[in-house]
Design a protein around this nucleic acid. Structure first.
Lengths: 199, 199
DNA sequence: CCTACCGATCGGTAGG
DNA sequence: CCTACCGATCGGTAGG
């Protein structure tokens, strides 16, 4: 499963042969097919597992969401899920491009709860005058998720080439990660609240 | 070329056989190979043509950039390039996932001018106190481009499923397009300027 | 979990 | 631009 996830994410479904997966695991091709039935069933299995882990992470944020600083908590969980395992972002992007109609249903199922949580927060905050009145909560939430997934998927691939500019000379990978997450969060927050710096 | 671009964007490079491209054009497979030499050469050709059109569009924005309202002009051209032909966004995303090291060079070559233009605008505006002081121009510009490409690539595929919410009942495709571009522009602008509504 | 094998399709070439 | 063909690899099956 791990190897299949990695290979599908890195080379795509059509670009990955079941022979290659079998080689990576150290068994023969028919043995792999015995376990999963077909290549397409393996694809479903890989996607299901990733979405199941996504569901593991959902309750965390709903608990935290009862406190203040909800926004930062949601962004932290959302970013963490993909940034800590970028192959998830690449896989979800590839699947969306490969089988849009198939992914639409799953995305509705799995991101809908998030969109609802975020949208309800936005409406509440809008009533308090904290959120810009022209924000469309649903489009906004969808856009933020797309931004996180998309930029995470290409970040490692591109070695964040254009992002090393004028800052201090040497920075560790952890610094890069934090800087990346912080900027994503900053953009999402600033484009939402009337006061761009407050949660 | 058109058919190859469309097929590579929709089904991916590995998922598209030269036979399928030949069928779409109405010629035989060896005839196609005669023109382009190999499948990989065709891939290069398709990518080169798209990047060449990107370069056609660059001067436009540099001319407009001498006037006021630079930001909106840059966003309009950037969004238009991808939103009007979403297969460009899908192709560039697939190529980045398929051959990251190969794309890094091209992206540095083709998006560097944009990043520089935007970054210089940001530094000027920062000095005037118009831009938030904590904005990292390079990371920001990279993030905006990623957001535009990523969300455009998946927008059509997903039929913007979660984005039909509470607005008026029936809206034409043009309305959707404008709403999409407007929200992208709004987010990019609001996360940059101290006053989120001014150019 | 294996060996042995299947038809279909892959990218590409020979030759005209 | 075609017909005819190449070896290699594809996903998958038979049978143990």
């Amino acid at each position: 499963m791990q190897e299949a996830t990695r290979l599908f994410a890195d080379q795509g479904y059509a670009g990955t042969s079941i022979q290659a997966i079998a080689d990576a695991v150290g068994i023969r091709k028919p043995s792999l097919l015995y376990h999963f039935g077909s290549k397409d069933a393996l694809r479903e299995c890989v996607l299901d597992e990733m979405l199941a882990r996504w569901n593991d992470v959902l309750p965390q944020v709903l608990v935290v969401a009862t406190r203040e600083r909800q926004f930062d908590a949601v962004m932290k969980v959302l970013c963490g899920f993909f940034v800590d395992r970028p192959e998830r972002a690449r896989l979800i992007l590839r699947e969306t491009l490969d089988r849009p109609e198939h992914m639409r249903a799953r995305i509705l199922q799995y991101v809908r709860p998030w969109v609802d949580v975020i949208a309800s927060q936005i409406e509440r905050a809008k009533a308090d005058g904290l959120v810009r009145p022209d924000v469309d909560g649903e489009v906004y939430a969808f856009q933020v998720i797309t931004m996180v997934v998309g930029s995470t998927a290409v970040r490692e691939s591109l070695g964040q080439a254009p992002a090393r500019g004028t800052t201090d000379s040497a920075a560790g990978p952890d610094d890069d990660r934090d800087r990346f997450v912080r900027e994503l969060t900053r953009m999402a927050r600033a484009s939402l609240y009337t006061n761009g710096t407050a949660g």
